[in-house]
Design a protein around this nucleic acid. Structure first.
Lengths: 136, 136
DNA sequence: ATAATTGCAAATGCTTTGCTTGTGA
DNA sequence: TCACAAGCAAAGCATTTGCAATTAT
């Protein structure tokens, strides 16, 4: 019962400690985009002595290994999610904070074109939509 | 010789102090996207006693009045630019930090469509491309 | 006149880090 | 074994804020 992220760590040669295993497990099972405090809260219920510094160091480690993605949405602290197999962007509900993932190949293609036209290779991008629910 | 931003302040009923006038002037004349430190540096050459707290308070004030835009590009501190008349997005050169502005109506339209399809009205968005220059 | 603004320094909030002890391979 | 990781508290950095003095309208 090693978690998804745990397997990726093994594959990347990242040393697995008990704490990292717990953080990996919690992140693997999280369907949302928790911030460090929230992660620490969730992990603490499994190991009450884990320090928040360890959570910070671990998410950074995972991020640098390409195992998790970090997001800095407007006005919020950094949030994390397990690196997805297929890329997606985010729509943030400005009233509730709810995050919805979406994929749009046309936009992806246009971004590459724009970059190319400006003389650049697209290395990374950030696309976030902020919206309010349409009432009916 | 009142600056562009100064006029907008008057129009919005924002009280104009000497310090604010200087910050408005510097921002009006800036073609780039300076951060608060840089703004403070530029303003200090006109008034050496202006405090950085005032710069922070003023850019926030201008931002809330819709007079300047704030950008939090990846890995950098907040940068500011005079609110443009026509919207644009940014491409950031990951090697030099250079910022290039661009407009793409197709992407804009697609963003609205994506939001609508998810049941949201698009209120705001963030699109940043990170790229490296194509060598020839 | 007087409510708003400034400058300063202290406080904040998130994140990183130094150091000593503990531990995975 | 022993280089690396954890826990703790202190430090860092960008930004905000309390307060007394100053200023714009």
């Amino acid at each position: 019962m090693s978690s998804d992220i745990e397997n990726k760590c093994a594959a990347k040669g990242v040393r697995l400690t008990d704490q990292r295993k717990l953080i990996a497990k919690v992140m693997s099972e999280s369907g949302d985009h928790p911030d460090v405090d929230e992660l620490h809260k969730r992990v603490s219920s499994l190991d009450s002595k884990i320090s928040i510094a360890t959570v910070y160091r671990t998410v950074k480690l995972f991020e640098e290994a390409g195992i998790v993605d970090k997001h800095d949405f407007k006005g919020n602290k950094a949030r994390y999610e397990q690196a997805p197999t297929e890329h997606h962007d985010h729509l943030i509900d400005i009233n509730t904070g709810k995050i919805i993932e979406f994929v749009n190949e046309d936009i992806e293609k246009l971004q590459k074109e724009v970059a190319k036209k400006l003389g650049y290779n697209l290395v990374d991008h950030r696309l976030e939509l902020y919206g309010s629910k349409i009432k009916k």
